[in-house]
Amino acid sequence: MKSMPSWIYALGALIFVLLFNAFATPGFFEINVLDGRLFGSVIDILNRVAPVALLSLGMTLVIATRGVDLSVGAVMAMSGAVAASLIARPEGNILLGLNFGDSVFLIVLAGLVTGLLCGLFNGLLVSRARIQPIVATLLLMVAGRGVAQLISDGQIITFSAPAFASIARGATLGMPNPFWIVVLFAAVILVLTRWTALGLFIESLGSNPIAARNVGINTGALLLFVYSVTGVCAGMAGMIAAADIQGADANNAGLYLELDAILAVSVGGTLLSGGRFSLVGTLIGAILMQTLTTTILTRGVAPELTLVVKALVVLAVCLLQSPTFLHMLRPKKVAA
């Protein structure tokens, strides 16, 4: 007996929104080639979804362990601030001691390490200090933006560095670079979890933490792993965001993106109560949310309504995952 994948609703909804656009939004599926690079609404969606997609990949693993990482937005701000400070080298900055020159590789590495350190911090609080994940990561969510401002001296650091900017703005093989970054991260995380036993261990831990310890799963190391992965993903998302605007805004970089990421994960069919997770579902969820946003924007609806739409999607997903709600629906159908 093979049950349907958990992301079937999300895929259905995505197809529905795409079909809607096919009829209602002229030129939605049009793709132009310019300088060997593809342009069009669909490409734009795949480009813009990158930061949220990265965050939600890591978030999927964290949520599968019954956790949540609220700090990813703030981590983006921190890694962005680190990268911007290393590139722009503003006077009196605390990172002046590090000179990476123009090496994009080293700067991205610094950003990723920033994310990794944040992830380790979260992971230690959750696994060692046994603090509830919502609370433990709330800490960095509050203090992280303060740290980001500390790094950038409270200013919006702007820079002009074409090589670094190409992370967000360049294209490879016709597709925008952020798309490839997501593909790379998704592939690595998929291989790490599904070609090894880590996926089973993560699902076991989320399904029953005590039993997981009793069968010898190293739950502490596993938690450290999932939060670190999320930290690195957030670090990369921060790089893309900084490269996109060629600057670092400690206050607004990644603001509320943690919520979008959680939304993408749950829309993608991973239960917030932990256990079974689906990375594919998460990617579909993230694309669905971005498609909705783009649809709203291209149709000229007031942009603030995206917030309302997101709210309604969250509620719809929650209700569809609620056994009580489904149970209530059923007898009605029978009666009707």
Partner: peptide
Amino acid sequence: KAEGIFPGLSIRE
């Protein structure tokens, strides 16, 4: 229930 099984996972897993 509390310390043994992994609910939601298959019998095989």
